[in-house]
Nucleic acid binder design. Structure first.
Lengths: 196, 196
DNA sequence: GACACTGTAGCACGATCGTTCGTGCTATAC
DNA sequence: GTATAGCACGAACGATCGTGCTACAGTGTC
């Protein structure tokens, strides 16, 4: 491509902020260039030029969202001591992010995974890779905790990671379906019950 | 509109079978009249006449899917003795339905809930009602089990229902995302671990 | 054999989709 | 002061969306 100007990068960034917000509600496919352009009061073609195709826009939006999770969930969690503290941190920070309603339509990757899990393509592969790393992160934190003797040795770290992720994911869906924050409490209880 | 003759009902039924299959992959919004008509080798307008609007088609598709779950999951499960047997039955039959790949894109209601959880409207309200009844069913089976003394009295049946649902829902996503049936085993392990 | 009714098809509509193209504006480089 | 490159715009493309309207074939009733 071409070397970018500060202004161009700024515009691109503001597009991605709006895009990830819209996509969390309408989905990555329901995210439309026209709707996005209207939201930002800019022309469809001017917006389009930043990405070259809708698929590229989707991929850029995914990367933007991933970075947000790294900054707001993973880094704070991994600042805690390795082991059960970090494991708790990952869950706490994730639920806290949902509670902060950073994405108006709920967890960006929960929505993306649900939308693309049965549809082949680069977008789906990208989402799969991000989710893979997230599950691996939970699993390795669980493994550290076992290694530290903070969890029973008989526990399967992958199974534990799956169950933690399951509780958090479902809290995301049901919170938005019913507008009931009690589901965050349910998720926290499930996490507490599983990590003991 | 109002279908009367046997032939009309038959056509309508075959439309709904195809519609629920497509919707499980592409979503209820991604389900398109043109695509559906092509799949069934009939005209868009002829198909359209059965429902009158896309929203009515979506609602009819939801009702069709709900009936399928009643027949293939709920009724078999509730044929077992009330209490822990029925509770296990609900989970087993549900996972078995997913394993049978009845819906090519995964659990119909998981997809529908994920798609509409943040979008107001009649479709979302209908899905919310179906999911509400499903959660209530799990909860009341858990309550029966506690009443029978098959589960510890200290257990919160609503919390248990949530955790069971969470494990099964997540198995659905991850199975389709990675094509890995091990996630069904994870779900079964989680259910076994939670009901004890 | 005429009739009413239901089910399906054909055709056209306005809107919106992603995408392309040509054209200016603006800020930096020479 | 002029050349250049990045950025954004408006207009238009063909395709497809959901939705009407009209015509006609099939079936059952008198």
């Amino acid at each position: 491509m071409a070397t970018r100007t500060a202004r161009g990068l700024e515009t691109r960034q503001s597009i991605l902020v709006a895009a990830s917000a819209i996509a969390s509600v309408e989905g990555l496919e329901g995210l439309t260039l026209g709707r996005l352009a209207a939201e930002l009061s800019m022309s469809k073609s001017g917006l389009f030029a930043h990405f070259g195709s809708k698929e590229e826009l989707q991929l850029a939006t995914i990367e933007h969202a991933r970075q947000l999770y790294v900054d707001q969930v993973i880094l704070p969690a991994l600042a805690r001591p390795r082991g059960i503290a970090a494991l708790h941190g990952l869950c706490d920070e994730y639920v806290a992010l949902m509670e902060r309603r950073v994405f108006p339509g709920g967890c960006f990757f929960a929505g993306a995974m649900a939308e693309f899990d049965a549809r082949p393509g680069i977008v789906r592969d990208t989402i799969a890779s991000v989710q893979r790393r997230w599950l691996d992160l939970l699993e390795s934190a669980a493994r550290d905790a076992i290694h530290n003797g903070e969890l029973e040795g008989g526990i399967d770290p992958a199974q534990l990671g799956f169950e933690l992720e399951a509780a958090m994911l479902s809290a995301n869906w049901y919170f938005h379906l019913y507008g009931d924050t009690a589901f965050f409490t349910r998720a926290r209880s499930a996490v507490q019950g599983a990590i003991r």
